[in-house]
């Protein structure tokens, strides 16, 4: 289904998102966004609060549908795909890291990491793979702990392990250090970039932290609903 020889992990053409307001008017959040993100690169998207960063991330990952234009994820246009088809496209190829971690509270650290492997069903020994991922984030001794028994930094490590466990081609991160203190943030940032390099994943990072954004190869800023490339 996916052409392995493509050059771009993500491409958009004239992408736009409007939302309908109550008084029958519409508000354009994003418009005319055209970008190409090469495979294996790291991209940061910054912007003021409410500028549409997260909306763009949702569109790029196929979590939301565009009002105009198209997004190609791993060479596959998503304009004509329904929700389940878009989910199938993400399966095993896309990872996510969120600001508030979003671990499943009823699953242990290990079970959270196992989740994507169980969904994908392509790894012969998911248990072993999950343990390795846990080890990579330095939490192999916390495998059976529930999220409520972990600190914020530990939870985000588990989230990173879960995101990278099936070696995703694209990793989307939404303010991954937004809920963490400075020291922990630095740890998580380092871990994030290390895992991205090790897995040769394409990283699309949304943040309002310019220092973090500057660590990426490409830095876009959203201004008035349009994408501006930072120097």
């Amino acid at each position: 289904m996916v052409d392995n020889t493509i050059n771009y992990a993500l491409e958009t053409t004239a992408l736009g998102k409007k939302i309908q307001l109550k008084n029958n008017q519409s508000l354009s959040i994003l418009h005319d966004i055209t970008l190409q993100i090469p495979q294996g690169s790291s991209v940061a998207i910054t912007g003021a609060s409410g500028s549409g960063k997260t909306t763009l991330l949702g569109l790029l990952a196929g979590l939301d549908t565009a009002s105009t234009g198209d997004v190609k994820l791993l060479g596959q246009s998503m304009v004509d795909l329904d929700e389940d088809q878009r989910a199938a496209l993400r399966l095993g190829q896309v990872g996510f890291v969120f600001q508030s971690f979003h671990l499943m509270n009823n699953l242990s650290a290990l079970e959270n990491i196992l989740l994507p492997l169980e969904l994908e069903q392509s790894v012969s020994d998911p248990h072993k793979a999950a343990l390795e991922a846990l080890e990579q984030v330095g939490l192999s001794n916390r495998a059976t702990h529930l999220p409520t028994q972990l600190s914020g930094g530990e939870q985000q490590r588990v989230a990173l392990a879960r995101a990278f466990v099936n070696k995703p081609k694209v990793l989307f991160a939404d303010e991954p250090t937004g809920n963490l203190d400075q020291a922990t943030s630095t740890d998580i940032e380092q871990l994030l970039f290390k895992l991205q390099k090790d897995n040769n994943s394409t990283l699309v990072l949304v943040t309002h932290d310019d220092a973090l954004a500057d660590q990426c190869q490409i830095h876009y800023r959203i201004v008035d609903g349009q994408l501006v490339t930072e120097a």
Partner: peptide, 16 residues
């Protein structure tokens, strides 16, 4: 709700 959304980001279908 959030758990379902997380599963969907991972590529789980509605049926799953």
């Amino acid at each position: 709700t959030h758990s379902v959304a997380v599963l969907k980001t991972m590529g789980a279908s509605r049926r799953r």
